[in-house]
Write a protein that binds this DNA or RNA. Sequence first.
DNA 1: AATAAAGTCAACCGCCTCGTC
DNA 2: GGACGAGGCGGTTGACTTTAT
Length: 285
Amino acid sequence: MGRQPCCDKVGLKRGPWTIEEDHKLMNFILNNGIHCWRMVPKLAGLLRCGKSCRLRWINYLRPDLKRGEFSEAEENQIIQLHARLGNRWSKIASHFPGRTDNEIKNHWNTRIKKRLKMLGLDPVTHKPMEQNEKVDVQKTETITTDFDSSKEEEERLGVTVTMSEKHTKNHAEFVETREKQNDKVDMAFDETTNDLLRSYELMLCRSLDDGGLLNTTTTTSTTSNSNYNPSFSLEDSLNPSCMGESSSSIQEDSIQRWVDSVNSMLSWDSFNQLDEGLFFSENVQ
DNA sequence: AATAAAGTCAACCGCCTCGTC
DNA sequence: GGACGAGGCGGTTGACTTTAT
């Protein structure tokens, strides 16, 4: 027999989380850690499904989150990684401690895409627009052609890739998938990527010289947390040795660091309106 | 000041992968 | 080996905010 479903979605709350719900979720995780997301809402007294709790924790409540604007360096790194990895946001996010895949994805869709277009680059192919237009005219000379040109190598390596796979993933992703399957490095692709990156750097430098393309980010309503220094990881907070029953100075220290992190986070959100005593009175002596 | 348009981002949806039974 | 669930992921939505007219 299989397991019980994650949630039946009947009578469950949806939409934006309230401060009280956040409080309950954080309080529960502080006390118990995370063992099974399906059980979290029940045990925490929340009318949410486990998935929703997980998402809320990962994207918003985690104490090691780095909030605030992306720096230029971060944006440039995202662009470079996207050129290599495509829309694999979680992989891209893994290069940015404290950033979530959702955050990076949103930033890409709302800011970086525009920035690339302003630079005359196609956000999908990372190639100059003009080049893409030529390609469009020829109709067949697209990324698909790049895939087709790889057929021989594909056969040589004994790999088969379905047409749907080819059309739904960009060249970079396709090549990397092939690398995974064969554990071989596509040197030609690396050279192409390097060429692209060199082009980026060149165009970005020109933009800087022109003064302004890179400074087009708008202010947002999101309050930043520039003072927050994530010194305590989620792994730490969920480590059984830290959260388990065996009490020790290490555990107390870990909890204290976690609390410090949360307190730091509270300063950047509406939580600061909460009565501090309400939040951790039962958890911290 | 009022309204429309554009921008932002938290949250949801549905699919996929992996582990378990 | 197939069925199933949990967790993870990327695409998309829609509420809210900001900017332009």
